[in-house]
Design a protein around this nucleic acid. Structure first.
Length: 574
RNA sequence: CGGGAUGUGGCGCAGUUUGGCUAGCGCGCUUGCCUUGGGAGCAAGAGGCCGGGGGUUCAAAUCCCUCCAUCCCGACCA
């Protein structure tokens, strides 16, 4: 391809609306353009990258026995009503009507469609396991699309669904996908980590997320630093270790003290000259069925996902000030569990281990001291509801946990029979018994993976594509297009590289060298060949490595071989 | 959905407070000359319903009302 003909509208300046690096660079380097909030056109270079990621995915899915299909984007409401998700999914589901007034939606995911398909076409255990996947546009009317391709309303996703006759089969399918995902992200040249995750609204038991490690990631993950221990979890899911009650001081008499104007944990702690670890933080939540007082130690945060799971509720929000006042009789900051009526008390394990603690007195400007759980209040539920932090002990081996940020690019789920039961999808087992399929679902955000790759691979000049997913491998730059010899040599190299199966473009634009260099660095071609008078004087050209920024002189005749070697060093395989 | 901000040629911005002639600047684009190793220079051009609608006024990018769009921060997710 000739750069003069290639649609790569690079920008010198960063579009004002782009905040994160991947968004800025993909815009500036001419990969994407926005059509509406969270909806993008992928220009030629981006589309090539997507194809490369898709190819890797297809190979790994096929290797595990996956069969590719293509399901509709537009789906009838009936299926969603049958599964119950038409009502549950909420405003994130793009809904539309046809000319007859029938309801449809744009698929945010395809469990309903595929379960319905398999229900009709697969009847026997002999046909199982069955792994079907597709690479398809997905639609989610995000509350807040942001970060360019990272969180769009329209995006490309690979989703695979597994159908097994029993849990043991599902375990095998799940392990296959775990392996496939590991291979996919490794082959894409990304630094990533699989983590234990929360299953969220989709439901199901086991689930892992695949996180690309990047500072700009929206998710926090904790992992064990201990060699040999591979514990890693999404922060919202990470388990805490139940503290052992330490035999300590003797319980003292409960007392109310004046803490004028001390609302926050820190204010109270410094006013009473105690450590926040001696305090009970009480936060009032409203759920769909009740009001809840959640308690964690003063130096901890409530993990709302854990709380939500512990309560088994559908909705969970921090209570507004009015509710807090009605329940506690005080303004926020003075809530405490002692003599608190009309709410469900939920305490973290750590709270129960406290002796002579401090908490709000349910009265403005007052706190209670020498509070002893069990004696002064009895929670309705004791559970792990706190947020794990770096430095906390690993739940597996006890070593210290660390924290990093990650971008979720894939997630694998064990669904069980949730959808097959709801939609009546059954097969006949060995005994002629009708049983629901045991399902799993496995997603990879393809366009998000592209963005994540940029987040992880860039410098102040632009993108540095991992060679396996680079839109092209090499750009040939004749320094001066007025110099006939340079042009002739560049054209010849361009031709030979393409003939050797190396994806190469030539920057034949009549611009000055600086312009072409800047553009090439911005776009992120892994290799660049400069054809200039300096080198040609000795029959050589320059081979420039984008990531290293290094230049080596290569004789013109040896260019193809040098490029092949360089690509191999970068980990390129066909 | 709550909070904050912004909408002016393709991109980045000024002008709006205090209404006033033909709406400016940089980049990019076109043509010519010149130049050619890290976003050159000179010259001449093209390109705008100043987000939409309504109002106030002799007069609106500017003041008022009202929609809309976009971005950022929070609660949800590949």
């Amino acid at each position: 391809m000739r750069v003069s003909q290639l649609l790569v509208p690079t920008l010198r300046e960063v579009p004002a609306e782009a905040e994160v690096v991947s968004h800025q660079l993909l815009m500036r380097a001419g990969f994407i353009r926005k059509a509406a909030a969270g909806i993008y056109t992928l220009l030629p270079l981006a589309w090539r990258v997507v194809h490369k990621i898709e190819r890797i995915i297809r190979e790994e899915m096929d290797k595990q026995g996956g069969q590719e299909i293509l399901m509709p984007i537009m789906q009838p409401a009936e299926l969603w009503q049958e599964s119950g998700r038409w009502d549950v999914y909420g405003p994130e589901l793009f809904r539309l009507k046809d000319r007859h007034g029938r309801d449809f939606c744009l698929g945010p995911t395809h469990e309903e469609i595929i379960t319905d398909l398999v229900k009709g076409e697969v009847n026997s255990y002999k046909q199982l396991p069955l792994l079907l996947y597709q690479i398809q546009n997905k639609y989610r009317d995000e509350r807040r699309p942001r970060f360019g391709l990272m969180r769009g309303r329209e995006f490309i996703m690979k989703d695979l669904y597994s159908f097994d006759k029993d849990e043991a089969g599902l375990d095998i399918s799940y392990r296959k996908m775990f392996e496939a995902y590991t291979n996919v992200f490794r082959r894409c040249g990304l630094q990533f980590r699989p983590v234990v995750a929360d299953s969220g609204a989709i439901g199901g038991s086991d689930t892992h997320e695949f996180m690309v490690l990047a500072e700009s990631g929206e998710a926090t993950i904790v992992y064990c630093d201990n060699e040999g221990c591979d514990y890693a979890a999404n922060e919202e899911r990470a388990e805490s270790v139940t503290p052992v009650a330490s035999p300590g001081e003797a319980p003292a008499k409960l007392q109310k003290v004046v803490t004028l104007g001390c609302r926050t944990i820190n204010e109270v702690a410094s006013f009473l000259n105690i450590s926040p670890q001696k305090m009970i933080k009480t936060i009032i939540y409203s759920t769909d069925k009740e009001t809840v007082a959640a308690m964690v130690r003063g130096d901890r945060e409530v993990n709302e996902v854990k709380l939500y799971n512990a309560l088994g509720c559908i909705r969970l929000d921090m209570a507004d000030d009015e509710t807090v006042a009605r329940i506690t009789g005080a303004s926020p900051g003075y809530a405490g569990p002692v003599d608190l009526e009309g709410v469900r008390l939920v305490a973290d394990h750590e709270v129960m281990a406290l002796i002579n603690a401090v908490c709000g007195a349910n009265e403005d400007d007052h706190h209670l001291v020498n509070v002893n759980p069990g004696r002064d209040f009895r929670p309705h539920l004791v559970a792990d509801i706190r947020l794990v932090k770096a430095g906390d002990p690993c739940p597996v081996c006890g070593a210290s946990l660390r924290e990093v940020k990650g971008i979720e690019v894939g997630q694998i789920f064990k669904l069980g029979d949730k959808y097959s039961k709801a939609l009546g999808a059954t097969f006949l087992d060995e005994n002629g018994q009708a049983r629901p399929f045991i399902m799993g679902c496995y997603g990879i955000g393809v366009t998000r993976t592209m963005a994540a790759a940029v987040e992880q691979n860039h410098d102040d000049r632009g993108i540095i594509w991992p060679v396996q997913i680079a839109p092209y491998h090499v750009i040939v730059v004749p320094i001066s297009t007025k110099d006939e010899e340079q042009v002739a040599v560049a054209e010849q190299i361009y031709r030979r590289l393409n003939e050797a199966g190396i994806e190469t473009v030539i920057d034949d634009r009549p611009d000055r060298a600086g312009v072409k260099f800047k553009d090439a660095d911005l776009v992120g071609y892994p290799l660049r060949i400069n054809v200039g008078s300096r080198g040609l004087a000795t029959g050589e050209v320059e081979l420039y490595l984008r990531r290293e920024g290094s230049i080596t002189m290569v004789p013109v005749e040896g260019v193809v071989e040098a490029v092949q070697n360089a690509l191999k060093t970068m980990g390129y395989t066909t």
